[in-house]
Simulated assay, not measured.
Amino acid sequence: MDKELLHKKIKKDIEDLINNHPPERTLGNLIPLSIFQAVRIGVLTAGCGIEAIIYNIGKDIGREVISRYVDRDNLLESFAEILKKAKIGILEVKKVEENEMILILKDCISCHNVPNVGTTLCHFEAGLIAGTLEKKLRRKVNAVETKCCGKGDEYCEFLVKIEDKLYW
């Protein structure tokens, strides 16, 4: 399997979606959210550290794709706009300090309208947040989901830690 070829295709599809040019398909441009969530939850139940893999996929996409569209001077507002355009979720800022943020994501693709399954489900979104912010801030960033609809919460909440060490 050519993993690099798949990454290029995913990158192009996300860029097209952000630029309001979704791929054409006879059955419509998007799959039903419930099908996507069923696949994600099925993968998560496989165990074996799959959460870290999903987080790292999100981090790569955030760093390599989403960050291209985020304005560093208007960081959180433009990030929120891109997440909404890409239909990933509605980002709100709860707290911003020099080395820590608390971000809320509503209507999230991974867990919107799922029942309380007793665990967090948004590893991809956590990685996406970390990767995007890491690239734009040029600092090591880690995001951890502290609230999730999968745990019965009203929305997803992420604790974002920003290290002092500069990258690049």
Results as ranks from 00 to 15, higher is better:
A38G: 11
I129F: 12
I61N: 05
E134G: 08
V65A: 10
C148E: 00
E64D: 14
A86F: 08
L91V: 13
N116V: 00
A80T: 13
K106H: 03
T119A: 08
K87I: 15
K106S: 13
G47C: 03
I82L: 08
G89C: 12
I109Y: 14
R72F: 10
H123F: 15
A143Y: 03
V114A: 02
E97S: 05
S78T: 15
N116H: 01
H123Y: 14
C149V: 13
T119Y: 03
D60E: 12
G118Q: 01
E92F: 11
N142G: 04
T146K: 04
R138K: 11
K84H: 15
Y55C: 12
F36S: 11
C108Y: 01
T120Q: 02
I104C: 11
I54W: 09
G152Q: 00
K87V: 14
C122Q: 03
E145F: 04
G42S: 05
Y69E: 07
K94M: 12
T120M: 03
A143I: 06
V96M: 08
G42C: 02
A143T: 08
I102C: 05
F79I: 02
G118Y: 00
I102D: 03
L83W: 15
N56E: 11
Q37K: 11
N113S: 09
A143V: 06
G62K: 04
K85S: 11
F79K: 07
T146H: 01
L76E: 14
L121Q: 03
C111M: 03
I53Y: 11
K106R: 14
V43F: 13
H112T: 07
I50Q: 07
R63H: 15
V114Y: 00
L91N: 15
V65N: 03
L128M: 13
K85G: 08
S110W: 08
G89L: 14
S110E: 12
A126H: 09
C111Y: 01
M101V: 06
E98P: 00
R72V: 13
N116F: 00
G62M: 03
E51L: 07
K106T: 05
F79M: 14
V96Q: 14
N74G: 07
L75F: 12
V96R: 13
S67N: 06
K94L: 13
T132S: 11
L44R: 08
E134S: 11
E97T: 04
G58C: 10
A38Y: 13
D60T: 10
S110G: 12
N74F: 15
K147L: 10
T119G: 06
F79Q: 07
E97K: 07
L83G: 14
L75Q: 11
L105F: 12
D153T: 00
V39R: 12
I82F: 12
D153P: 01
T119Q: 06
T146G: 04
I90C: 13
V70H: 08
G118F: 00
R68P: 01
N142T: 11
T146R: 02
K87C: 09
